[in-house]
Design a binder for these strands. Structure first.
Lengths: 115, 115
DNA sequence: TCCAGGGCCGTAGATTGTCTACACGACGGC
DNA sequence: GCCGTCGTGTAGACAATCTACGGCCCTGGA
């Protein structure tokens, strides 16, 4: 599947490495399924954070393997089958870690940009 | 060259996509060579931003190809041959673009983290 | 009745930027 | 002469993201 170079010009909508943190934070507000997570991120960020399914689902599976989140099949309000995720204790630890690393990073970069 | 998984655990010191912006910003303060850029980033960020040579030089070459920076061999104060880079007009445009994208991104992520 | 659109999950492969790990030369001080 | 620091560079591993698909279920309207 050979793709045009041009199509990849505007890649990286999300700053690499922040997706896990954003998902964990979303799950802090309550259990949610993948589609719901992406909707929540999108609306709460005024449409800025648009997570593609090719990023989202692999991330969820990765995080489930790492036991940061736990999953369960349930019905949605629309009466559809969906995989609901909730954050685990380990996930909360990870979230705290990610947040502090993020703060450090933003502070460091700001110190360059505002010098 | 098969490497141990463990060694890659703590990767991504830099948020992916920010390196170009940081280099351009550094060059705004005056022409500088690669080694100097990495020292500047490191010291101005209180040792947080540590750019590896394997990231730095490819980035510089990339940016030179894109004409965001221009290069010239000169002597350092230590009387060593070094490749000095300066930012171009196009580079300044790119920097402005990167900065605004960065601000948008940080604001969006903050809106999630602080909700 | 059926079909269009939205909700919902998923994977394959391309691409890129980062990292680790190495090699090399020049210079200055001991 | 040798070692530490200055300074440039490359090869290959790796992970996260994207594009581009495919597929199922449900509901409402033609």
């Amino acid at each position: 599947m050979k793709l045009e170079r041009e199509k990849y010009r505007n890649r990286i909508e999300l700053l690499q490495g922040t997706l896990d943190m954003l998902i964990l934070q979303t799950l802090q507000w309550g259990a949610q399924h993948g589609y719901g997570i992406s909707q929540a991120l999108r609306s709460r960020s005024s449409e800025v954070l648009q997570v593609e399914t090719g990023s989202l689902y692999p991330a969820l599976h990765r995080m489930e393997r790492q036991k940061w989140i736990a999953a369960e099949w349930r019905q949605t309000e629309q009466n559809q089958r969906a995989r609901f995720y909730r954050i685990t204790a380990e996930g909360r630890r990870q979230l705290a870690h990610d947040r502090s690393k993020w703060e450090t990073m933003v502070a460091a970069i700001s110190s360059i940009l505002e010098a």
